[in-house]
Nucleic acid binder design. Structure first.
Length: 739
DNA sequence: GCGTAATAGATTTTT
DNA sequence: TCTATTACGC
């Protein structure tokens, strides 16, 4: 997210001179409430970081007196780096971070006020769900009839709105398990407290509860934090809003940056109303609009503006082109026959762009839903174009990392039942349902942690589990002692070996197993960067990211949501069809509001592009294995006709198909099966130079996506492989490794 | 207690 | 079409 102003980096005092007048106003209005409406590509991050540095440079505040909040770790990191760059020295002692990490930091100081100790554990979503299921089970809820994820979502929405179980009104609690959701929520919270655990939502909720119930604590923070900066204000939910208001209430020096047109997270509890209401919430607020866009060409800006103008209730901004070379190609709208042709079209254009010297890292394919990436991945593999999928499973969400973390957690907190439950039979120790049930019953009856219950249970087990469980419990004691003697890194490594956990993956023959062992090594390496185990556990829960596959020149594949805040020279926007984009679920659940949010998502997508935007729509798409006909997205009709260039093979292909009566069974709108289209030669890949191929027929090879297989044929740098776990495929040699 | 077969259900997911 | 969870047989 950089605003490419034509000024060299500098650490001098000229940082203000590098701003345009509106940016400068946003930076220099230091006192009182300020709302900065920052359109896409208008230098939002530059303004925020410069304002931060300006506060420090002018002596208005010490580093510890400014609170700067972001949503993502990435944004927080970037802000820290850029503030340091302006200051000319590393920025230390800042209250800068994500909402959640800042709240965690505060909550560690006040944990006892909400019934926790400062060593509380932050649960991941998996643990949250398991805990809730246990609570529901104990309450005698039929989990078939009332699935736990539904209640989890409800509890999270309540937490997003700052509602503790006590604050939820009975009127709101009618449609789940016959009005028992509130009671279950309360029971869930009570279990969390017993286990000294927090879920993500609790971090925010507990802190606002501390502020509400303890004015002296709030007054202390009010004195301490004199200036507040908030990024992406349009994405804040109610509890975040309360938290900010409480923190800002005495000095009112709060500066929020955001763009109502980029609010795309209502389904996660974000309230666009927060930004729309800012001037009412903070009387005499200064509103600054940043409208000079330094990112995109005029046609791209025109397309985005024309589209978003179809939304009602906007604060209203008009982006104007700020860069000198803002002339450019029209936005392309390509109509295609089906999703396969769409993938071929995108692949072909990327190849051609690469031949013309474009960097792959400057190209992105932005899709509405995760499953859409697959078709493109397969095509890119065939073409040998390196790519990375952004998003997906986070490092700490992987099973092996969560298992390893559970082993470490049980050392740090013996009462962490969820952690113990996770590892007690991983790897398999011969414990079954009955043994687990007895363990839980004993723990509940005696009011003791599961580990203690397990210890008492050992003698009464049959030989095999008795020995295995006994060894685990002894191990836990030994490893915990080792923490002080040998340090957490050594303990972690020996623990994974002695518990049999690494052996479990070494014995596993699935294609993912080697990668999992690698991830475990990475975990140990990362552990070495931390002083203590506790510090590491918090880091993994809140901050740890997955940045593999980021090296080299690769194009990016991601959802539109994941693309917010990023920019690329060339952006492909496939799948603009009714039902997919706008998504039918968004329309069903949100009605007109839902469509408006989808439109904002489209706006976000288009404004990611600096120079080229290629939108496409397919007449037929395979969804869950079935081919179904679709009609072009309404958003296509909302683009300015004079700024877009329509292209397409859809009509041509349709004519050709019409000549095939055996498969073509009627009007296209009613077709159930996908008709075969005669291959269009234009999409065929061009000839490439023939490098010597190192792979031989019959050789065993490994592919990151398809696993192990045997080479059956070699043609230039393309290799036919018969995969063990997948159909035979032709792949590029650069994707293959020797096992 | 564990491995395999049937079966339902499949947006978006900053922390 | 694929995946994740659940129901059975050994």
């Amino acid at each position: 997210m950089s605003a490419p102003l034509p000024t060299p980096p500098s650490s001098g005092d000229d940082y203000l001179a590098r701003l345009n007048p509106e940016q400068r106003e946003a930076v220099e209005t230091l006192d009182g409430p300020v709302l900065i409406l920052a359109g896409a590509g208008t230098g939002k991050t530059r303004v925020l970081t410069t304002r931060f540095a300006h506060l420090l440079k002018t002596g208005r505040a010490w580093p510890g007196q400014v609170l700067a909040v972001t949503f993502t770790n990435k944004a927080a990191r970037e802000m820290r780096e850029r503030v340091s760059a302006i200051l000319g020295q590393p920025a230390e002692g800042l209250w800068l971070g994500t909402f959640h990490s800042l709240c965690a930091r505060m909550l560690r100081r006040h944990a006892e006020l909400v019934g926790l100790t400062s060593a509380f554990t932050i649960l991941d979503t998996d643990d949250q769900m398991r805990l809730l299921k246990q609570v529901m089970d104990a309450a005698g809820i039929d989990l078939k009839r009332w699935p736990a994820p539904g209640l989890m979502a409800q509890i999270q929405r309540w937490k997003d709105r700052g509602l503790t179980a006590e604050r939820v009104t009975p009127a709101e609690d009618t449609d789940y398990a016959g009005g028992r959701a509130r009671a279950l929520y309360a029971a869930y919270q009570s279990r969390l407290r017993d286990l000294n655990c927090c879920d993500f939502g609790d971090l925010m909720l507990h802190m606002t509860e501390v502020f509400r119930g303890h004015p002296e604590v709030l007054a202390d923070w009010n004195r301490r934090l004199r200036y507040i900066l908030v990024d992406e204000y349009q994405d804040t939910n109610l509890v975040q809003y309360y938290w900010l208001r409480l923190l800002a209430q005495s000095h009112r020096n709060i500066c929020c940056v955001g763009d109502d047109d980029q609010s795309i997270y209502s389904w996660r509890g974000a309230e666009i109303e927060n930004i729309l209401r800012f001037e009412k919430d903070f009387p005499n607020a200064k509103v600054v609009r940043l409208e000079a866009n330094y990112r995109s060409t005029k046609p791209i800006l025109a397309a985005a503006a024309h589209l978003i103008a179809h939304n009602a209730g906007r604060l209203g901004k008009t982006l104007r082109a700020g860069r000198k070379d803002a002339e450019g190609d029209k936005v392309r709208v390509v109509s295609l026959w089906d999703s396969e042709e769409e993938a071929r079209m995108v692949g072909e254009r990327i190849e051609s762009a690469r031949r013309n010297g474009h960097k792959l890292a400057e190209i992105a394919i932005l899709v509405r839903a995760g499953f859409q990436t697959r078709a493109f991945e397969e095509r890119l593999i065939v073409l040998g174009l390196p790519y990375r999928v952004v998003g997906g499973l986070k490092f700490y969400e992987r099973a092996e990392i969560r298992d390893a973390m559970a082993y470490l957690r049980i050392l740090a907190q013996p009462a962490d039942d969820l952690a113990f439950e996770r590892i007690v039979n991983t790897p398999k120790r011969g414990l079954g349902e009955t043994a687990m049930r007895r363990m839980h019953e004993l723990a509940r009856a005696e009011g003791i942690p599961l580990v203690l219950a397990a210890e008492r249970l050992v003698p009464s087990l049959t030989a095999k589990p008795r020995q295995a469980l006994g060894a685990l419990l002894q191990g836990i004691g030994r490893w915990r002692e080792g923490l002080a003697k040998e340090g957490h890194v050594v303990v972690a490594a020996t623990l994974l070996d002695e518990s049999g956990y690494t052996d479990m993956w070494k014995a596993d023959k699935s294609p993912e197993a080697p990668g999992r062992l690698e991830n475990l090594k990475e975990l140990i390496r990362a552990l070495g960067e931390f002083e203590s185990l506790a510090g590491f556990l918090e880091h993994v829960a809140l901050v740890m990211e997955n940045d593999e596959n980021s090296e080299g020149d690769r194009l990016s594949l991601m959802t539109l949501h994941a693309a917010k805040g990023l920019e690329f020279d060339t952006v492909f926007l496939p799948g603009w069809e009714e039902g997919l984009f706008p998504h039918s679920r968004a329309m069903e659940e949100g009605g007109d509001k839902g469509v408006e949010e989808e439109r904002r998502l489209a706006y976000v997508g288009i404004t990611r592009a600096r120079r080229h935007a290629i939108i496409s729509t397919a007449a037929n798409r395979r969804i869950y294995g079935n081919w179904s006909a679709s009609i072009p997205s309404r958003f296509l009709d909302e683009l300015p006709p004079d700024q877009i260039q329509r292209e397409g093979s859809a009509s041509m292909a349709r004519a050709r198909v019409a000549e095939m009566p055996s498969v073509f069974t009627g009007p296209s709108g009613l077709m159930a099966r996908k008709p075969r289209v005669i291959e269009a030669g234009a999409w065929e890949a061009p000839v490439r130079p023939p490098p010597a191929n190192p792979f031989k027929v019959g050789e065993r090879v490994f592919h990151k996506k398809f696993g192990y297989g045997v080479v059956t044929a070699v043609d230039d740098n393309r290799v036919d492989v018969d995969f063990e776990k997948s159909d035979p495929k032709r792949v590029m040699d650069s994707f293959l490794e020797r096992p």
